[in-house]
């Protein structure tokens, strides 16, 4: 009996100590992790817009994020848009519900701080208190509008689609007329040496500058990537003086109308990325037009 007691006490103490150690490490690292992730996303967004250390972003640049939800109100499918709005000069969010056909249903104010809105659980609690109990909602996606003063300079679309192995997460940047500004691969688990090459500049930069009409028709071709195009995509020879900036631009211009050259040995990954990008751009442009119509009709003072 005494031995069992000793064992139990020993185990309890060691579990408690372990729990304290893990709990405190979690508390410390969790904040750092969130901060680092936030910084990384910010850097990617600025990088896609062409800003970086050498070219700091202007002070009037700001980002407005639209979160899209799918609602189920007693069997009726609705779309919910969480829109950033200006209210008495302050930025808050409003939740607008529309039917799949794009007809306005209702508009609800949300109690959420702009900083907290980037956290999924925070949004969920805000939505739960604003919506009816019986409504089931699920997060669909988010799109970010980059603004310089009052002008929209780009749309940034975080997107996710199945690749060859698991999911590929990307961030796509479109300009105001839905032409591609750039593509960044955020996360993937493709094979090193093969599918993992999608993250290399010579692949992802092929999307750069494709106009929306061209993008819709984009295909993947199984042809070797021409050397001069590869250099231009990598912007490699720039520093060495062999190819000037103008020549790089000229080369890029030359291949502008071309399809996407598949990565050797990774056609499926290349195709997955291309289809994913086309899909994201097409759906976004369609939705934005429908959304703008409703916003104009309801005269919502949106912050984008």
């Amino acid at each position: 009996m005494k031995e069992i007691l000793r064992i139990i006490i020993g185990l309890t103490i060691s579990c408690l100590v372990a729990a304290v150690v893990m709990g405190s490490v979690f508390a410390i690292t969790d904040r750092a992790k969130k901060h680092n992730e936030h910084v990384k996303v910010q850097e990617t967004m600025l990088g896609l817009l062409g800003y970086g250390k050498a070219n700091p972003p202007p002070s009037e640049l700001r980002f407005a994020t639209i979160y899209r939800y799918i609602l189920n109100e007693n069997g009726n499918i609705r779309l919910g848009y969480m829109l950033p709005v200006f209210e008495n000069g302050r930025e808050t969010f409003e939740f607008m519900i529309v039917t799949p056909d794009g007809d306005f249903v209702e508009k609800l104010p949300l109690k959420i701080e702009p900083d907290a809105a980037s956290e999924g659980p925070e949004r969920e609690t805000a939505l739960k208190s604003a919506l009816k109990r019986s409504t089931i909602f699920s997060f669909a996606d988010s799109s970010i509008v980059a603004l310089k003063g009052k002008d929209r300079i780009a749309y940034l679309l975080p997107s996710e689609f199945p690749g060859f192995k698991t999911f590929i997460k990307v961030m796509l940047a479109l300009d105001a007329r839905f032409s591609v500004i750039g593509l960044e691969i955020m996360e993937h688990e493709e094979d090193p040496g093969l599918g993992a090459e999608i993250a290399q500049p010579y692949f992802k930069n092929q999307f750069k500058g494709k106009a929306f009409d061209r993008l819709k028709e984009l295909k993947v071709v199984k042809e070797p990537l021409p050397d001069e195009y590869k250099l231009a995509l990598e912007g490699k020879a720039l520093g060495k003086g062999a190819v000037s900036r103008e020549e790089v631009d000229a080369l890029r211009q030359k291949y502008q109308g071309k399809d996407i050259f598949a990565i050797t040995g990774a056609t499926i990954s290349s195709r997955a990325v291309t289809d994913g990008v086309i899909n994201a751009a097409k759906k976004f442009s369609y939705r934005l037009k429908a959304l703008e119509k409703v916003i104009a009709a309801q005269q919502i003072a949106v912050a984008f």
């Binding site: 799918i70 499918i77 779309l79 529309v98 799949p100 056909d101 794009g102 669909a140 759906k283 369609y286 939705r287 429908a290």
Partner: peptide, 10 residues
């Protein structure tokens, strides 16, 4: 017909 995740795109 629509994908379940995109109820607004027929």
């Amino acid at each position: 017909v629509n994908e379940k995740t995109d109820p607004d795109i027929y």
